[in-house]
Amino acid sequence: MRGLMLFLSFLFYQIGFYPALGTNVPPTLVTDLSKKIISINVNFSGSKFHIFGAVKRGFSQNASIDQPPFDIMIEVIGPPVSLDFFKKERLYGFWINKKIQSFNSIPSFYSISGTKPLEKIVEKKAKKENKIGLFEQIKASENLAIDDNILSKIALTGKSKTTYKQESKPIIFLENTLFSTEIDLPTDLVEGNYLVRIHLIRFKEVLATQEDIIFVKKVGLEQWINYLAHKNPAVYGLLAIFLAIGFGWAASIIFSRKAY
């Protein structure tokens, strides 16, 4: 946390004394993540990371205090997975799953947060143009037309509580310049690159977008087991068998000694 504050004060310093260029340079973003890698180890139980940054203004915008405020929107998009989308329907008294859509490459995780309620920051058109929002991301990565009606139902699945967050924690935005937010990652993370997209918005127009990547990977025992289970399943199966027999055998030796 102290490191983060130091970094932020350093940013403040840099921006405050930005050389006067005299030209109207459009504002851009300077951003960073508190972590670049998230490791899933034996006692992993979800994770968090911070996204922080600052708005870097062109000269002409620098001094004026009565500038209309900026807005920031931050998206985190997990690596693609294949998912089937089901609707539960009643059949002879049983609740059965009926497949309504197959996704071949849908983000495994999605989170979006903003400095204001999201619908007040951008409009549909800008969202579409800049591929902002879960539905736009799904459409972009699926590469096929999907009924909006089906997409809107994704928000109703249990997954939406942890995996597809339509409105995460709000972004803290100081002096119309510095911003930071915290992203919660659930325990059922898919390994791979998580794309972080930070949008600078004013008057519902996207002025700049900055992208960064956070890498999630299993490490140590978890990595080894997972690798073996998927790359060499026969060996893994035999290992599971020998481990179980070994434990059972060891137990029978230990306890039969105790009994006599």
Binding site: I225, A229, H230, P233, A234, Y236, G237, L238, L239, A240, I241, L243, A244, F247, G248, A251, F255
Partner: peptide
């Protein structure tokens, strides 16, 4: 165990071992 591991990738060795430790005792 072998067939599930090699066909469905659904055997969790850590889960099975922990249950087994409690189970044998």
């Amino acid at each position: 165990t072998f067939l599930h591991a090699s066909k469905n990738f659904s055997v969790d060795i850590v889960l099975a071992t922990l249950l087994l430790i409690g189970g044998v005792v």
